[in-house]
Design a protein around this nucleic acid. Structure first.
Lengths: 243, 243
DNA sequence: TGCTGTTGATAACAAAGGTTAAATTGGGCC
DNA sequence: GGCCCAATTTAACCTTTGTTATCAACAGCA
């Protein structure tokens, strides 16, 4: 993976969602970075750690997760190529959750110093990144709704549609089929239910002809039914610069 | 309520959490604003609306909330004096949830233009606000954990401890007693359970001698037991500038 | 090839939480 | 004081989800 390979997913997303200027993107592309590779399940940043760099997902999937005293774990977000899952460390030092690789993945690390200098020099870059963290927050709020109010059946449908819409932005959905490299246990940790119950729900979705999940890949069979279940209102993703 | 009355809670919080410079705070205090009063239960900003101002809670409590298609509602956050609950509109136009007054309250509205100009002129002010939105996001993530993984009994304890820590910052906790102006139905909407179940849990907490909630006021009786239930690790509030 | 560990599938039973309904409390107001 | 309305409290019953335990499928590997 070389320099010209790490930026496309982020730039694609920024161009669609913020109408980023070419100059700002060129300035970004000039940033120095270090590539690191992680294996499935490997922890990238640990709760409590104080990283001096922010990372860009160049390839693969990651998750934020938090483990509480009794050992239960909640997955907080799923991150895909083009995401910057620890921009928050630009403004506070310590991680308050783990960042873990969901699949083998490649991350580009960019030092805080270089990022902060660029942001001071080009406020437009800062605006893009600030916006990015705000949309990230909006997604977290939607997850509160998902876990708090939707039935598990609808909840899983919503989670899948959200991920699909985000993957679509970076061109990773083909034939209504896309990657979701989580085990049933991890899907459960994202939804606040056990793996046993996740299995029940997946079976129902399969039997009802809505979708199938096999070895980390979802295939949607009944788009209409899926929409009806997810009741997905994507405004919270703020995909257009004007919204 | 006059100019010298609206800023103290915010300044208190910023001084503790960011080590804000006096110049930055003075510049903030010079911002023009409009005061508006809201009654309990009145909607301040509606989902879909595109406000041209950000608001500072000068007095009273507000909440963010989202209503889904089947009519169920999830409370996403509770806001107290000194909070800026719609800073996100500086970077995207449309609200993706409602902002509602939980009690009678007074809000100071500051135009986006004035705020953006100040941020460009004084990047330190922008940093403080960006950080503020990042901590807001960290709180949302903790709410996902709360709703997804904790038992309702522990969940309510956690919610109460979090609110107390935030109120303590602005000097609103006296004798381990403080305001939490939510009905049992609203507490349920914050926890993702029904009002009937909220009532059961409150009864248990009362019987177990942990705390009592009456007419919007909590009194803690057994701090040790409360800690044990909430398993509260406040690092996600990032109360110190160095963390 | 067969071993091993992880993931997925399923069943029986238990616990948590939802639904509905009814009664009670308490504050605001005439 | 008495009325009204919202909020609280409780009970009975039902649904959803968790727990525990097996077993099957499957990938990695010696």
């Amino acid at each position: 993976m070389t320099s010209d390979r790490i930026w496309p997913p982020l730039f694609e997303r920024l161009k669609t969602t913020t109408g980023a200027s070419d100059q700002d993107l060129q300035a970004l592309a000039a940033l120095p970075f270090t590539l690191r590779h992680y294996r499935e399940n490997q922890t990238v940043l640990r709760d409590g750690e104080q990283p001096s760099e922010c990372c860009l997902i160049a390839d693969g999937f990651c998750m934020r997760a938090k483990t509480i005293a009794d050992g239960r774990r909640q997955i907080l977000s799923i991150h895909i190529p083009g995401d910057l899952p620890n921009l928050q460390n630009l403004h506070y030092a310590a991680m308050d959750h783990d960042l873990v690789a969901l699949s083998d993945c490649t991350l580009a690390f960019i030092g805080h110093r270089a990022l902060k200098d660029l942001i001071r020099e080009r406020p437009g870059v800062g605006d893009m990144f600030w916006r990015d963290t705000l949309v990230d927050a909006a997604i977290s709020r939607e997850w509160i709704v998902n876990v708090g109010q939707r039935s598990t059946y609808n909840r899983l449908a919503h989670l899948i549609v959200e991920l699909r819409e985000r993957l679509r932005l970076i061109g990773r959905v083909i034939d209504n089929t896309f990657a979701i490299p989580l085990t049933q246990e991890q899907l459960g940790e994202a939804m606040g239910v056990t793996s046993v119950h996740t299995n029940r729900i997946l079976r129902d979705l399969r039997i009802d002809g809505v979708l199938e999940l096999q070895r980390g890949t979802v295939k949607i069979f009944d788009e209409h039914k899926l929409q009806e279940l997810a009741q997905f209102d994507g405004r919270y993703l703020h995909l257009s610069p004007s919204a």
